[in-house]
Structures are given as C-alpha cells and as structure tokens.
C-alpha cells in the first residue's frame, strides 16, 4: 500500500478509535451512540441468529431488481434517444433539471397509486437511477469515434457485428460510469423509501428500532448498510478508475 493509503487507513482507525474512546468513557451518552465495537458485536449476533435474514434479503433483492431494470431500460432508452436527435434536443431541459429536483418527493404519490408494497419502492428506485444510465448511454454513444464505422466497412462487418464488436466496447467505459451511478442512486432511493414508508425491509427495521430505543439493533443494521454500500461503491469506483486508466480516459 502507498504512503497515502497508510495515512488514510490511520485517519480512519483514529476516527473510529476516538469514537470508541468517547463512548466507552462516557463523553458520548450511550443512549445516543454505542461504541463501534458493540455495534460490530451486535451485528455479528444479529447475523448469526438469522433474525434479520428475511429483511436483508428483501431489501437487497429490491435494490438489485431496481438497479437491473434501470440499467437495462436506461440503456435501451438511451440508444433510442440517441438515434432521434430532435427528440434528444427536446428532452435536454428535462435531463438538465431531473437530478436538480428532489424526485423522491413523488414516492408518497406512488404509494398512493400502487399501495404500500414493493412496487412503489422499485419504481422510485428505477426512477432515481434510470436517468443517470440514459445520460451515460448518450455520452458513451457520442464518444464512439466516427472512424470506427469506416474501419468496420474496411473489415466488411455487418450492422450487428459493428455494434457488438466495435461500438459497444468503444462506449463501454462510459456505460459503466452510468452503471456505477445507477447503483449508488438506486441504493439510496430504496433505503430512503423503506425508512420513510414501507411495510418491511432494512430501512423499516432500523426506523422501528429507533422508535423502540433498541440501539444495538439499530446500530448493527446501520453498520451493515454502511459496510455494504461502501464496499459496493468502492469496488465499482476502483473498476471504473482502472478501466479509465487502461483506456487513457481522464478521470470520469
């Protein structure tokens, strides 16, 4: 690991250590925050007991479903919009505004329409993630060098072969950036919906534990979510960077 990496690790260890110290020695009230070590123990016990397995499976299932729909549909929509420049120009103002408005405020509207079930959660997850994928697809298709279609003709490649062998790989790093954003947006939207209003799921369980003053349970699940989100985002980020480096693309 590099020097910077070691310093970073040290910073994180000291921060967690300071929190542990402050909690253990009463600088922070246990009713507010429990020591990190106790969070980890509580999480270990909870996972070993299997009590939360159903909720965990439910939440991550919804997240994966929402992200998968957003990525596949977003790519398809992006391809269609890219082929219709006039539609694309007309949609421009909507894309520029989309992430500026709190889309999440429409979650209760979806609950009103579809009832309190999985559907509105998946829908708000897809709605939050899909536009990032559409925009990344448009960007990726824009970045395909024009010379590639000439190369394709020199090699007498058909439309399908050109799309799969040349255009898709040329656009791939930009598409992946879209996937990365879709994953983190989808994750955030699903968890937020479960927190605010949901029949079940990790967000709901944490929010219930908060109401019941069940701090070990609350912090255990919080820790789980933070670990999973950080891990997934770090893997995607590392992959993204490596790809960009290999392709000589400036940091995305």
């Amino acid at each position: 690991m590099s020097r910077v990496g070691w310093i970073r690790l040290a910073v994180i260890v000291i921060a967690v250590g300071a929190l542990e110290f402050a909690c253990q020695f009463g600088f922070i009230n246990r009713k507010v925050v429990i020591p990190p070590s106790e969070m980890a123990v509580a999480l270990g016990k909870l996972l070993a007991s299997g009590q939360a397995n159903g909720e965990i499976a439910r939440t991550f299932g919804i997240i994966v479903l929402a992200i998968a729909i957003a990525v596949v549909l977003g790519f398809a929509i992006g391809v269609v919009i890219h082929a219709l420049p006039r539609l694309r120009q007309a949609l421009d103002p909507f894309f520029a505004t989309y992430y500026a408005v709190p889309i999440f405020i429409f979650y209760p509207v979806m609950v009103a329409i579809f009832g309190l079930s999985v559907i509105p959660i998946v829908l708000i997850g897809v709605a939050t993630a899909i536009v990032a994928m559409i925009m990344a697809t448009l960007n990726g298709l824009d970045r395909i060098p024009r010379v590639l279609s000439k190369v394709a003709r020199v090699h007498r490649m058909g439309a399908v072969a050109t799309a799969l062998r040349l255009k898709l790989p040329a656009a791939a790093p930009y598409l992946f950036t879209g996937v990365k954003l879709a994953v983190s947006y989808g994750f955030i939207a699903v968890i937020a919906s479960e927190f605010i209003l949901a029949p079940a799921g990790l967000g709901r369980v944490i929010s219930d534990a908060y109401s019941d003053f069940n701090n070990p349970r609350m912090y255990a699940l919080m820790l789980l979510l933070i670990i999973v989100a950080t891990f997934v985002n770090m893997v995607l980020h590392a992959f993204d960077q490596r790809w960009a480096e290999r392709r000589g693309i400036g940091r995305p």
Partner: peptide, 23 residues
C-alpha cells in the same frame, strides 16, 4: 488522503444516519 473518504461518504445512503442525528 481524503478524496476517497469523501467519495465513499458521498455515495452512502445518508438517510441511514438520520436516527443518529435525531438521537
């Protein structure tokens, strides 16, 4: 040192931490 830390916190579902803020 800080950039990756900032980026991980940025992509975290921060709603998870709201109960702590409330406490």
């Amino acid at each position: 040192v800080g950039e990756p830390i900032l980026i991980s916190i940025y992509t975290l579902p921060k709603i998870t931490l709201y109960p702590v803020v409330l406490l």
